[in-house]
Design a protein around this nucleic acid. Structure first.
Length: 657
RNA sequence: GGGGGCGUAGCUCAGUCGGAUAGAGCAUCAGCCUUCUAAGCUGAGGGUCACAGGUUCGAUUCCUGUCGCCCCUACCA
């Protein structure tokens, strides 16, 4: 509704500008900072002032002369020295919300691919991974809400160095056979992902102490890439088991995937070999014959640096990116170029697929396979737009991937590749002290310390979720001793997830989060539970109303435009209704800016506005029936907007709190 | 050295295309529960938008420089 009016006004003013001044400029529309200026403001007169050499106020007057008012607009006003402020017809607007036009599907039929999570399958997930997955999942939900067709991919680097390291720990350090590792995996007493977390830290420390042991890594990596022998078998066991825990951990937060493309298939199905030929043929890479990168296939730095390289500083050959090592093995970036090509359907090859698991809701998760094993496999890949949710430290590598596409002549795909980057989650000094980490003098002076898997330094995702649930459960038990234990547990889980998802979303993407337990465990102020609590309050009014009057009235027949117009003359009521009506607009803005944080902020603001209303209005006990009906309708409308916004954020509303 | 990011209230952060009196939350202080749940509401204090120039009707926002912090700059990912 709000968006339609905005679009209508933009069109009307653009026509007016063309008619009156004979120039075409895009008209922008904004929301005044102060409610007393009206609902919308059009600063177009300022834009025109310079080229036309006229006072903005005069231009505004010319534009308004003879302009027909759209139905929902009650007045145009010229304010200040040239703002055109728009006042909406409140009664008509409310009627419009009461009788919404049938929804229009915006979907284009094109597929958008969002790749997120992408955790190395060699240890338990930590809070940094949570930020990735929650950002990615929320962005997916936003796109789907806008009507887009979205495929969610979670890339599994199951043949990489990190998996090799854990295999080294099992094989060389612990002298375990694959069968014994399988036993560990099957043992319900043991958290295998946690065990690997410790092993990874141990082996990483050993590499530093005894650099000789690094040859184990090379051996293991080679064996895993070749895909043969006990070490390779163990690599698969470890990676598959860890992927299962990751999928499960993320499902606790309501995050699901469609397909798990794996590096092992990129290798075995010769995706890389195909991409390699393409890159050579198009001269996107060349065989370096001199200096430090001798014997490697490299991509010249000029391909992925946008600025002209200064001839004085460094030289291009030294800064070029190695794609194939001198020993003939391919780097991660090389494989990523092949993978990115496949996502757009530009590689000329496809994976085979096998069913991996079925989510409780019935959704199927698939994994790539190197041979055909199943029929009725959905079509994966072939996206027209690709979002890679990857932390900002890897932007250099993402630039190389895009440069690869461009060098192959796939400009459209290069343009449609978006590095959806975000800053890391670090740990606050207080939290480090809490988890028993000794800080160096240098670290003590820092505002935060980076998570490090190698050092085993971090907060595990499941531990954090458990802690949040415990905290919430304590509160729920205290407040609702009368409820069943199982239900309380479920409510506590919903609150915990609301707190966690909101916490990860409230920061804009390029802000480093200095994770702090005390902050994350807070359920007050700008938090998920605050918004959930607000929705529960609205829910309670609706429930109690039904208890007292047996059912909700039929608002469409009992509410009249005249009475709505009168009611919404009260500024606070009107502002609440108006804000609640802007949820779609908030989602569109969040999608356009790529900032889920904007939607989180909107949810919080709407909750604040409703809490305000809740505090000084009694709905059920209102004696004037007409007024009661309107208060109730407003409550119901805000509730439904709040619930659907929370749903897009991946946050459930509990039955009670 | 090169590339990128950041610097806004005591702390953590928003701030849309350059626009009207720079906003939240936390913390502090003062109030508000016989009512639809106080995980709430109201109010107060708290700002040289790092600094210096420039662009213009107008700059927290754009440009240049300085200072400080962070990330990247691997034949790791």
């Amino acid at each position: 509704m709000f968006q339609e009016i905005e679009k209508q006004l933009i069109r009307a003013f653009e026509e007016q500008v063309a008619a009156k001044f004979g120039t075409g400029i895009p008209v922008s529309i904004e929301q005044p900072k102060q409610a007393c200026f009206g609902e919308l403001a059009i600063p177009v007169a300022f834009q025109l002032a310079r080229p036309l050499r006229k006072a903005p106020k005069q231009i505004a007057e010319t534009l308004l002369a003879g302009l027909e008012r759209p139905a929902a607009v009650s007045a145009f006003e010229i304010a200040g020295n040239g703002y055109i402020n728009v006042r909406l017809d409140r009664g008509a607007y409310a009627m419009g919300l009461l009788n919404p036009p049938s929804a229009n599907a915006a979907g284009s039929g094109e597929k958008i691919i969002v790749e997120h999570t992408n955790i190395n399958p060699n240890k338990a997930a930590h809070i940094g991974h949570l930020r990735n997955a929650i950002l990615g999942d929320t962005f997916v939900r936003m796109l789907r809400h806008r009507g887009h067709f979205v495929e969610v991919q979670n890339y599994i680097d199951n043949t990489g160095v990190q998996v090799a390291d854990v295999v080294v720990a099992f094989h060389y350090l612990e002298k375990k056979s694959p069968a014994e590792v399988q036993k560990l995996i099957d043992n319900p007493e043991i958290r295998f992902d946690y065990l690997c977390w410790d092993f990874y830290a141990r082996i990483s420390a050993l590499y530093v102490q005894e650099p000789d042991s690094l040859r184990w890594r090379a051996e293991a990596l080679h064996a895993i890439e070749a895909g043969e022998g006990q070490v390779a078998e163990m690599g698969h066991l470890v990676a598959d088991a860890i992927v299962r825990s990751h999928v499960q951990t993320m499902y606790r937060l309501g995050i699901e995937y469609d397909v798990l493309p794996r590096e092992s298939e990129i290798l075995h199905l010769k995706f890389w070999a195909t991409a390699f030929e393409l890159l050579k043929k198009q001269s996107a890479i060349y065989l370096e014959t001199e200096r430090k990168n001798r014997g490697c296939w490299v991509m010249p730095a000029s391909a992925f640096r946008n600025s002209e390289s200064d001839p004085d500083s460094g030289n291009d050959a030294e800064d070029s990116k190695v794609i194939v090592r001198s020993n003939g093995t391919v780097t991660y970036v090389g494989k990523d170029i092949a993978y990115q090509l496949w996502k757009f359907g530009l590689l000329g090859k496809d994976f085979f697929y096998r069913h991996w698991s079925t989510y409780p809701g019935g959704h199927q998760l698939w994994v790539t396979s190197d041979h055909a094993v199943e029929e009725n496999v959905p079509q994966f890949g072939r996206g027209s737009k690709v979002f890679n949710v990857i932390d900002s430290r890897q932007s250099y590598l993402q630039d190389v991937v895009v440069a690869g596409l461009r060098a192959l002549g796939f400009d459209r795909a290069a343009d449609a590749s978006v590095h959806f980057s975000y800053e890391m989650v670090a740990l606050s000094p207080r939290t480090l002290a809490q988890i028993g980490v000794e800080l160096s003098e240098e670290d003590k002076r820092r505002a935060y310390v980076e998570v490090s898997g190698r050092k085993g330094l971090g907060v595990k995702a499941d531990d954090l979720i458990d802690k949040l649930i415990d905290t919430a459960l304590g509160e729920v038990e205290h407040r609702h001793p009368e409820q069943l234990a199982a239900e309380r547990q479920n409510v506590a889980r919903q609150i915990a997830i609301g707190a966690l998802r909101y916490f990860m979303l409230k920061f804009t993407r390029n802000s480093v989060i200095a994770f702090d337990f005390q902050e994350a465990l807070s359920f007050e102020g700008e938090t998920g539970p605050y918004v959930q609590y607000t929705a529960v309050r609205a829910q309670n009014i609706l429930r109690k109303y039904v208890e007292r009057f047996s059912k909700l009235p039929d608002f469409r027949t009992c509410l009249q435009q005249v009475s709505l117009a009168r009611f919404f003359e009260t500024e606070n009521f009107w502002q609440l209704l108006l804000l609640a009506s802007k949820s779609d607009s908030a989602i569109e803005r969040a999608v356009a800016s790529g900032e889920p944080a904007h939607l989180a902020k909107y949810a919080f603001q709407l909750a604040q506005a409703f809490n305000n209303f809740y505090h000084d209005q009694r709905v059920i006990s209102e004696e004037n029936e007409e007024r009661r009906h309107i208060l109730l309708w407003l409550t119901q409308y805000v509730h439904s907007q709040l619930v659907s916004t929370l749903q897009v954020l991946g946050i459930d509303v509990p039955e009670y709190m």
